[in-house]
Amino acid sequence: MAAPTVHARKWRLPSDFSQIEAVTRVEFVRNLRRKRLLIFMIIIILVSALVLSVPPFYGGYPDNPILGPYQFAQYFTSAINFLVILLAVFYGGDALVSEFSNRTGYAIFPNPIRRSSLFLGKLFASMLACILILGVYYLIIAVSMAIIYQRLVVELVYSFAYALLYMAACLGVAFLISASMRSTVSALVLTFVLFLFIFSMISGILMVFGVRTEPLLTFQAGVISGFLNGPYPESFPSPQIPLGRIPGGGGLELVIHNPTVVHGIAICLDWLLVSLLLAYIMFRRREMLG
């Protein structure tokens, strides 16, 4: 047998920053290799194709020289809330829980790396994947606008910047659910249901009672399109909408609120910070049971 060779070389433990970078790289590569990236690209190409192909059958694109590009962009941005929710579900919903439910934590946690580094690396990688997809979508809008109207509007950049913040907040909530659930499937389903049904239900109920729905994260998605409303809908709330009278007396009127930019930014930041903090605490404390 050869002479002992163990410990002949010494490796220096890298800094937390360097480990975060390593985790981000690997998680991003994983995100790129999953089929979900391809699916998202297909979705945005289909949505874009739909938005670009339908108006010519009904009189063409908006032709107002001033407002036309804004109205055109709104065709696209109306789909962004749903796109962001899907991104949060698929890039945040299973990001943390999978380490436990898929048993990959047995390989990664015994390494000399803090849970905070893993958490941040995963978060950055998920954000990068979402930025990539959202970026491609906005690029399609910008290129289409430039071709059709021979001009670009700066509000598209504002809308994109805000969409990124909104996406980050949604991702934060998805991370919180991911940190608290036992299985990957239940985390994905709950994230989806929360954004598409629970928030909408609460919003609908509050609207009936005339209560402002501002604290709800999904309500703040309105800002994304608001930028492209040209001018931004400043009134708050917007006019009441009568929904008809109920026979025998009484009536129902809905108050439609429009989110403001300042509120939108503040509330997205609140959701982002609180949900990420809670998600990190839960992820850090979670044990590898079973």
Partner: peptide, 16 residues
């Protein structure tokens, strides 16, 4: 999604 070489290279980076 990763190969053994990629996986071990990742762990190598985490180990410095």
């Amino acid at each position: 999604e990763l190969t053994p070489v990629e996986t071990l290279s990742y762990f190598a980076r985490l180990r410095g």
